[in-house]
Computed example of a mutant assay.
Amino acid sequence: MASTTGLCAGRVTVVTGAGRGLGRAHALAFAAEGARIVVNDYGVGPDGSAARRSSGSSGSGPAERVVEEIRAAGGTAVAHTGDIATAEGASSLVATALDAFGRLDTLVNNAGFLRDRMLVNLDEDDWDAVVRVHLKGHFLPLRHAAAHWRAEAGSGRAPAARVVNTSSGAGLLGSVGQGNYSAAKAGILGLTLVAAAELGRYGVQVNALAPAARTRMTEQVFADAMAAPPGDDADAFDAMAPENVSPLVVWLGSAASAGVTGRVFEAEAGRITVMEGWRAGPTADKGARWTPAEAGAAATDLLTAAEPPRPAYGARR
């Protein structure tokens, strides 16, 4: 694959959930910048069902097809079809990078699926499945990659390692009908902050992205954008294309992002935003214990002075 600037030349990047959508776009973009890629995809349906699962590493599932795309363009890639929300799958993911390429530089945690329900209809299995693939599916690959990088640092081979986690606007604001997904994506933000604080000593930077793009998971949300063709102009900007998000991910996953860690970005179309998270707003301090009535009066005054919250996605305004 012809490199555009060689920003990631010599680096090895793992992308989970890279068989389609955002993950595929990220894998292709990293490869275009010279990275060698481990393309992970378990091959399941949009709701995590096993119907579309690849039969194995020798099959022709989504991971293998992306590998073929990268190789056809002159790049270097291997497939990994394990379940990264298991210890065995996450361990073998890191091992695949080390066995194939002898190193690991960047981990992009992207895998996930949806099982949307209103809270009163959300059963325990749908809660567990979504939290497992998103939150545990971030933790386990991160844990195994971090153990490798810690060992490298301990041996005097300080890595310039990068982790890019995938959250969502649902994790930042909440999203009606997505209690399980919103909770998992919010958890990813907390995990990102902790990992950035803990792993910096080993040469690891950890950031998170809240992307908005057209994928299998968002096809209903962006139905109008999908239905509307870009127009007669072949060069018209497709605002919801997942490829719009990947340049920021590639930069965060490269050595060029040195010093950037513990940050959360939103990326959509041509827009990049640094999210500033929870910050202290108006405060009242009595210097002693409040009565409930006093606490209520103080809270009411503080809320009057505070910025109004942004509504959850899908909430009535």
Rank of each mutant, 00 (worst) to 15 (best):
S3R: 14
S3N: 09
G6L: 11
A9T: 15
R11S: 13
R11Y: 03
V12E: 07
T13K: 06
G17Y: 05
G21E: 02
L22P: 05
H26L: 00
A27F: 10
E33Q: 14
E33K: 12
R36I: 00
N40D: 02
D41Y: 13
D41N: 11
G43S: 11
G45M: 01
D47I: 05
D47K: 13
A50F: 02
A50R: 13
S54K: 03
G56L: 12
S57M: 07
S60N: 15
G61K: 11
A63Y: 04
R65L: 15
V66S: 05
V67K: 09
V67F: 07
E68C: 01
R71N: 01
A72F: 03
A73L: 12
G75C: 10
G75K: 10
T76V: 14
T81E: 02
G82P: 09
T86R: 04
G89D: 07
A90N: 03
S91F: 01
S92Y: 01
L93M: 06
V94I: 15
V94D: 02
A95C: 00
A97K: 13
F101G: 10
R103L: 06
D105R: 11
A111S: 07
D116M: 12
D123N: 14
W127K: 05
W127R: 10
V130G: 06
V130L: 06
V131W: 04
H134Q: 04
L135W: 06
K136D: 09
K136Q: 11
H138Q: 14
H138E: 13
F139C: 02
L140D: 01
H144F: 15
A146H: 03
W149N: 04
A153V: 05
A158L: 15
P159R: 10
V163G: 08
N165A: 11
T166Q: 06
S167H: 06
G169A: 12
G171H: 08
V176G: 02
A183R: 05
I188K: 04
L193Q: 14
A196M: 09
A196L: 10
A197F: 01
E198C: 10
G200Q: 08
V204N: 01
N207S: 14
A208I: 07
L209P: 09
L209A: 10
A210Q: 00
M217D: 01
E219M: 12
Q220F: 05
V221N: 04
F222L: 15
P229A: 07
P230W: 00
D232H: 07
D238I: 12
A241V: 05
P242F: 07
P242C: 07
E243M: 01
N244G: 12
N244F: 09
P247F: 08
P247I: 03
L248V: 11
W251G: 10
L252P: 10
A258W: 05
G259D: 02
T261P: 12
G262A: 07
G262T: 00
R263I: 00
E266N: 11
E266F: 12
A267V: 15
E268R: 11
A269R: 12
G270E: 11
R271N: 05
V274K: 09
V274M: 11
M275L: 14
M275W: 14
E276V: 06
W278V: 13
W278E: 06
G281R: 06
K286M: 03
W290I: 00
W290H: 14
T291H: 03
T291S: 15
T291P: 09
T291I: 04
A298F: 02
T300F: 08
D301Q: 13
L303H: 08
A305N: 00
P308I: 03
G314N: 09
A315T: 04
A315E: 12
